[in-house]
């Protein structure tokens, strides 16, 4: 058994920033004939390597556009890195965007099954957890209401409750704690704390140093797609603030 939950080795991610999007055949033909496939290559990540140990609370820090979210998406398997590879040991619960995969036309009840399935859970399993989800999200009175009539806070609550219904090996959080009212935020933080206490590895992306310091032990700092430093949270956040 390895001790690492996530191993990122030599990952680069290249985007073709199609400044003028080539979306139609005609344009494509014209460009191809002119031999002008106007792609601006843009490296969101350049040769990034690090390891996250099991049970760690790990932060990825960086300013806007530094590649934090890209990195998270690579770890959770949404993007495939251009070069390098990522090895993940264990199940992942990505809280990258709460309620991704909700269908606004469907009711909360239907969405629980839909979203649960998006995360790869079986129907039987969701049925077992159903009451727990509803009670955590405090949406008892709204289970049969279509989601389009929900407030954004209610949608976020439902999303969080579904995503955290099991204890995952790795929990990936992308600045989502700013949703919901104060008491629900508290509740979310408490649940995340419980999970890390039980051995879940937490990966948190944020530029709120306050929050990161409260939750994490170690961190990596990324600037313009390059890894600047990795180490204990104090050192990294000092470097970031002075930086």
């Amino acid at each position: 058994m390895t001790k690492n939950a996530v191993e990122v080795s030599g990952v680069s991610m290249r985007f073709n920033l199609a400044r003028e999007r080539v979306d139609s055949l005609k344009e494509y033909m014209i460009r191809a004939l002119k031999k002008n496939m106007n792609y601006d290559e843009f490296y969101a990540l350049k040769d990034v390597s690090f390891k996250i140990q099991k049970g760690d609370s790990f932060a990825i820090i960086g300013s806007n556009g530094s590649g934090k979210s890209t990195l998270l998406k690579i770890i959770s398997g949404i993007f495939k890195p251009t070069t390098g590879k990522v090895e993940v040991n264990g199940s992942i619960a990505p809280l990258i965007e709460l309620g991704a995969g909700f269908d606004m036309e469907l009711t909360a009840r239907e969405n629980i099954f839909l979203n649960g399935a998006v995360l790869g859970y079986s129907k039987k399993f969701i049925l077992e957890k159903y009451d727990e989800i509803i009670s955590f999200s405090e949406l008892h009175n709204f289970v049969d209401v279509p989601l389009k009539n929900f407030s954004s806070g209610m949608v976020a609550r439902l999303g969080f409750s579904i995503a955290t219904m099991v204890q995952p090996d790795i929990l990936i959080v992308d600045e989502i704690l700013s949703v919901g009212d104060y008491s629900f935020q508290e509740k979310c933080e408490k649940r995340m704390k419980e999970m890390t206490d039980n051995g879940t590895t937490l990966i948190l992306v944020s530029h709120s140093i306050e929050q990161v310091k409260k939750v994490c032990n170690n961190a990596v700092l990324i600037r313009e797609g390059e890894l600047v430093t990795i180490g204990p949270i104090e050192d990294v956040s000092n470097l970031y603030l002075n930086g």
Binding site: D103, E105, L106, E110, F113, L114, G116, A117, V118, G120, Y121, S122, K123
Partner: peptide, 20 residues
């Protein structure tokens, strides 16, 4: 196999929404 549940959920959703 893992995502067969998702497949059925998508199908159910499509059918439900079609005539809602």
């Amino acid at each position: 196999w893992k995502y067969k549940g998702l497949l059925t959920q998508f199908i159910i959703r499509d059918i439900k929404i079609k005539y809602r």
